[in-house]
Each structure stands twice: as structure tokens, then as C-alpha cells.
Design a protein around this nucleic acid. Sequence first.
DNA 1: TGTTGATGTGTAACTGTTACACTAAACATT
DNA 2: AATGTTTAGTGTAACAGTTACACATCAACA
Lengths: 245, 245
Amino acid sequence: MKKKDFNVSVDCVIYGYDLKRLNIIVLKRVLRSRDTNEILIDDLKLPGNQIYHDEDFDEGAARIVKDLTGLNSIELHQFKAFGSPARISGEKDLLWFRHIKHPHTRVFTIAYYSLLKPYQTRLALERKEHARWYPIYEVGNMAYDHKQIVQESLEALRLKIKLQPNLIFQLLPAKFTMSQLMGLYEELYQIALDRRNFYKKINSLKYIVRLDEKQENVAHKPGILYMFSNDLFDQYWNKRNIISS
Amino acid sequence: MKKKDFNVSVDCVIYGYDLKRLNIIVLKRVLRSRDTNEILIDDLKLPGNQIYHDEDFDEGAARIVKDLTGLNSIELHQFKAFGSPARISGEKDLLWFRHIKHPHTRVFTIAYYSLLKPYQTRLALERKEHARWYPIYEVGNMAYDHKQIVQESLEALRLKIKLQPNLIFQLLPAKFTMSQLMGLYEELYQIALDRRNFYKKINSLKYIVRLDEKQENVAHKPGILYMFSNDLFDQYWNKRNIISS
DNA sequence: TGTTGATGTGTAACTGTTACACTAAACATT
DNA sequence: AATGTTTAGTGTAACAGTTACACATCAACA
């Protein structure tokens, strides 16, 4: 790359599960005409920022999560760098760059995802960009190539959780029922699971411990509560077979 | 990032299996003192380059492989971006930048790995950097953070092949014996496998077909030759279980 | 007290994994 | 021609995990 007409940024796909649907945090991108006040752009983008001069990618991503949610020490997973020269070439994107920001430059972005509990999170709504949770399977077009970034983050997350199932509990409350865990698997992988087999499977995992408590105030038979133990996970988790069938 | 004092490059970890050891392509980095001709630096680095102004990461990586091996249409796998401000801070690295190249700037790199057959590959040795195959488990210190990049590429590759075992055949000749395939698994994962169980497992995979041929000119019982069928793989390959044990 | 709606549970067939030891084939050596 | 060397090829039994499948239970509410 000869001329330095480009920027490097970090974008985050932040996941949350509200016990019904899988959501991500999106920001609003709105542009009004200065003259007519007509809305020229009104769509969604991912939280992201250019990284600072002496900042690591991981630090940049942590800063974005912190600014947005106030949460420190959230686990971040870098999954891919996006840098196609064409990634900012849509009509709206060019318009946005022309009216609001710097002249259009090539923008590389290092994409991250992270997992958190939406009901324990207050979004920093004071920002002009109006952050909100959005059901991931309902996101339509987004700014730039952010739709693609979301899609690839989902694939990366699904894969990651197959390999490190402990991560899924970052999306759940500390105490959860079997149905809630199963519902999350069904939502994340968009499949239907058999309840009896699921119970059997989970019961065989030593690191998910059954508590002596039940759900309260539900209008049906209350579920038994379980919790995930990180210590037991570390103790029991072993690598799987090398050659997959 | 406020000042644009940085560059973006692509580095490639190119794997080859010579039926004995797993190798990667490395380049020599040599610096001699202008006055005394004393060797100041003599170590190894990964093939890599800054990307062109209008070039995709994938294109940049393809260009590196092409320049080095003459091979087109090699599959490339982006696995991580490295961009820590400290990644170029070793004594030798700073020396190298000072004497030979630009003033030291922050360098981001998008790292790729790819798989090829070393015995079908002629390295472009005319380059001053003297490319060569190097057994991966014997690489010592490398320039910059390249040792770490190699290590992480290996982990990414091991994972990838667990999930997409078809890729492993890119490292083998079109016709191979069971022992060769098993040897590659043993080398890649640094484990010992049981031959009978391995044979049973492989025979159960419909996409690995037994040919009516044997090894020739070997000083022992010749092995039966097998080949991998991409078509059959696509037909039979299914996703595995969601919740890993 | 009955209705509603989600929870909790067992078995049998099947599939894949593990551990384990001897014979066969080709070439090399004498 | 006989022998040695080296690697290839093969089966079984115990075990572990996966699948498919139907009915009784409990809490809230009307």
C-alpha cells in the first residue's frame, strides 16, 4: 500500500439473549439534509471506532464495549478482518462519508464479537447514535458491510460454542432452567431439539450443576434451576476426537 | 487512530508435508554491517507484503503465494489480524527498520495460512530472501512476532481440519496410503494413533475411496492406495452434534 | 376444582470408540 | 535360495454416546 489513505477501526457484534430471542446491539445512522431536513439515511450500523495510535485491537474493542455498556472485563473474540476496497461503496455509505465525515478513505476493520446478559446491561443511550438491542434474525440491511460482519460473527460464534460450550453461559443468568438453556441452543443454531435427550445430555455434563431451587412465579410447573461451574468445566473438559465423522 | 503512521500488510504461513515432516515456507532475513560486513541479523521471517492500494486482503495473500511458488488458485485461510503496537519492538527488528527500511511505523498484518504439496512446488529461489521449507516444529525465534503467528496458525489449522477434514488432503498426493494419511495426522496433532482403529475409521468415511493399486518400489509390503473424492465429501459431509461432550 | 402450559422422566436400538497381536508382502542381504 | 528387515493389513468384545419416542406432574389462574 503506497499512499496512506486509509484507516483502521474495530467493530463489535455484541450478543445478548433475553430468554426469548438472540439480540445484538446496533446503533442508528441517521442523516438529514441540511436544507430540507429530509431524512436521507436512516439505517443501522455496528458499534465501532477507529483505534487509537498506541492501542491494541483488543483494547480498542474493550473500549467500545465499555463506552456502550459501562461493562469492563468482557471477553472479546476477534474473528476476522474486513478490508475489501469495495466494502464502503454503497450509495448511502458514500453519501454519509461526503456529508458527515472525512473524505472517503479505505477503511479496514477488525471485527469482534462478545457475549453479555442484556438484562444486566444498561445501554449508554445518551449517545446521539441511540444504541438498542435488535433481534439478530430480523436485521435487514445495515451500513457498509455490517450485515455481512454480523452474519460471519454468527457463524464464528456458533463454531466457537461447539468447541467451547462454556461460553454459552455468558448469555444466561447465573441460575437457569433446562428449558432456558435448550431454548438458547435452539435460538442460536435455529434448530429444534428433543427435550428428553437434551436433559440427558446436560445431566451427563459434570460442570452443569443442579441446584436445590425452583423457578418462582411462573404459571406452570416450575423448572429446576441449574448453574454452570467454571471450575468444574476446567476440570472435566477434554479435547474431542481429531478426525470428525 | 489520529496520525496515519502505520502500514497494513499480509503474512502467509504456507504449509507443506513431505510425507515425513510438516514444513512451512520461511524467508531469510540477513543484515550485514556496511562498515565491517559483520552479520548483524540472520534469522527467519514469514513471506509477507504490504497490500496494494486497491487490493483485497485475500488478493494480497494470493499474490504472495503466487510470487513465491508460481501457484495460482491456492486456497487461503485468513485466521487473525495482528496489530499490537509492541509487535515490532525487538532489538533486531528495530535495527532492521533503522538500517534497511522506512523509519519504524506501526505495522498491522492480516495473517493467512494455506496448504500445498511441497513436492509439486518449486520455490522462487531467485529472490534475495532465499525461501526454503522449514520443519515447523523446529523453528526457533523469528523476526517480529512471526513465531507467534506461526504458532497461532498451527492452532487454527488443527481446528479447521477437525471441522473440515477434507482440507488435509491438500497436503497429500492425489494417491496416498493409509500410513501416509495417518502419519500426517500424527505429525499435525503430535499424537500417536492406533493403526487398526484408524483404518476402521477411515474405511467408514465414504469419501475416501480405496483404489485397485499398490505402492511401488518400497522395501516392504506395499500399501494400498486411496484417494479423496471432493464430490463424495460434499455428498456425505454433515454437521456434527451441537453440544460437544 | 378444573384448565392451561411447560416441566420431568426411561428404555431399547443403534452408532461410534477403544484396546489389543498376529500374519503378509516386498525388497535387501547373505 | 534362504533369511532378515520393515511396514501393511486385519477382527472382536466392551464401552460410551446418540437417537427416537409418550405420559404423568406441578404451579398459577379462572
